[in-house]
Nucleic acid binder design. Structure first.
Length: 426
RNA sequence: GGAGAGGUGACAGAGCGGCCGAAUGUGGCGGUCUCGAAAACCGUUGGGCGUGUAAGCGCCCCGUGGGUUCAAAUCCCACCCUCUCCGCCA
């Protein structure tokens, strides 16, 4: 959420910045409501001041046993007027609030201008695109051949875009989760969190899923609860409506969670394999930092995600999102993309964003610099560190051998009981 | 799911429908004392919104949302959450 006062004072600057994102927002309407609301406030508050004053007089008169009938009579009228104005103010306030919650974040000045994802900028590459001396197979074929993925039965048991992992596949998934958690905790200084996988509407609003993107989430029937699309939601909302101490900052959290996405609107895309599923696992990095450090923290966060890929020996590149591809909440975003042989291109496997105070304002997460200073909003960041499902797919594809077996990256072997290779079982 | 108790400021804990944004204690901050510290003593100590160049002024906030009343932390209604007991249960 943007700062309403800031919008009020720099409407043109906001308009200009929003134009770069390609998003259109009803700024004029919003400013009109804002003005309306403030006019109502001035009027109603004056009346309330009057009421408070007279009520005090009534109290004095009654205490002294005198008659206050005429004052009470007069106030009866004023009170009704206050009630009407209050109601009107609440209505305008609600519209204002809703409009404000639907305006996207503004891009940071360092974000390249662009009109679509075509204009994203490659920042760096690591590793060589894997070369094969045989015809490589896509992961869904390798996995089915090895009997470590089962899509068909998942279709029966649940539906499309779900899968069973079996045997070494299941264990590899688990190994990846543990490997990543250990790495970020032990080497990157994150504190581990195991969050709820279901959140309420307040939390979903805090991180920006609601009100605009409700259809992307699974909602529990008859409840104001949602399956989380990412651990970002519960972990960021950990400190909702809190004022943190300066000495507690920066806070780094790492959390494993399952993620659930309706994938509304992506019918027909990535229908095979485990690139796009309704449920996947992810290890997520979340930071709460001083505003003045957030861009430096974003670089570190991105590097932390990249380290995972490096340790797994997976070729990747990092792209920076242009103004048109930042999404709703980010001010700046890098996407590490892994080399996926079956796609013949790099595929997004992480997404590292600085939200500045956009989420903090929604979720009301603040901090105090000094014991006596005014609370300020923290800056929040997060990034996948990294998506497990896509990572498993990338490993299977990049580490496949001519005989159909899959080599296990060395970093994972301790988590696989020393196993070096997945071969077809009995 | 059934029965009961309760939600007040950083924490503990008072609070008759009017003088309560809220006693008191602890903690925090500032100071006196001290070579320094502790103790003691004195002072101070929430958030939001609006208005104003500013100092300031005003409004709102006692789980949340409504209602009654000239006036509500105090009365009424609904919801949420916590705790205890019973039942069920990984």
């Amino acid at each position: 959420m943007l700062d309403l006062k800031m919008i009020r004072q720099n409407p043109d600057r906001v308009r200009e910045a929003l134009a770069k994102t390609g998003e259109k927002a009803p700024l004029d309407q919003l400013l009109k409501w804002d003005e309306q609301r403030r006019a109502l406030l001035v009027e109603v508050e004056e009346l309330k001041a009057k009421r408070n004053e007279v009520s005090a007089q009534v109290a004095v008169l009654k205490r002294e046993g005198q008659d206050a009938g005429s004052l009470i009579e007069e106030m009866r009228f004023v009170s009704q007027r206050i009630k009407d104005l209050d109601k009107k103010e609440r209505e305008v306030q609600a519209k204002l609030e809703d409009a404000l919650l639907r305006i996207p974040n503004l891009p940071h000045e360092s974000v390249p201008l662009g009109e679509s994802e075509e204009d994203n900028v490659e920042i760096r590459r690591w590793g060589e695109q894997t070369a094969f001396e045989f015809e490589p197979l896509p992961h869904w074929e390798i996995g089915v051949n090895l009997d470590i993925f089962d899509f068909e039965r998942a279709g029966k048991v649940t539906g499309s875009r779900f899968l069973f992992l079996k045997r070494e596949g299941a264990r590899l998934e688990r190994a990846l989760i543990n490997f990543m958690l250990d790495l970020h905790v032990e080497e990157h200084g994150y504190e581990e969190i195991f969050p709820p996988f279901i959140v309420n509407a307040g939390s979903a609003t805090g991180t920006g899923q609601l009100p605009k993107f409700a259809v992307d989430m699974f909602k529990l029937e008859n409840l104001d609860y949602y399956l989380i699309p990412t651990a970002e939601v519960p972990v960021t909302n950990l400190y909702r409506d809190e004022i943190l101490n300066a000495e507690d900052l920066p806070i780094y959290h790492v959390a494993y969670s399952a993620c659930f996405r309706s994938e509304a609107g992506s019918a027909g895309r990535d229908t095979r394999g485990l690139v796009r599923t309704h449920q996947f696992n992810k290890v997520e990095l979340v930071k709460f930092v001083f505003p003045e450090n957030s861009y430096q923290e974003l670089e570190k966060l991105t590097n932390n995600a990249e380290t995972v890929l490096q340790k797994l020996g997976l070729p990747y590149r990092v792209t920076q999102m242009c103004t048109a591809d930042l999404g709703f909440t980010a001010a700046k975003k890098y996407d590490p993309e892994v080399w996926m042989p079956s796609y013949g291109r790099y595929v997004e496997i992480s997404s590292c964003s600085n939200f500045e105070d956009f989420q903090a304002r929604r979720a009301n997460i603040r901090f105090r610099r000094e014991k006596k200073s005014k609370p300020e909003f923290v800056h929040t960041l997060n990034g996948s560190g990294i998506a497990i499902g896509r990572c498993l797919a990338a490993i299977v594809e990049n580490y496949q051998e001519a005989d159909g077996s899959v080599l296990i990256p060395e970093a994972l072997r301790p988590y696989m009981g020393g196993l070096e290779r997945i071969t077809k079982g009995k």
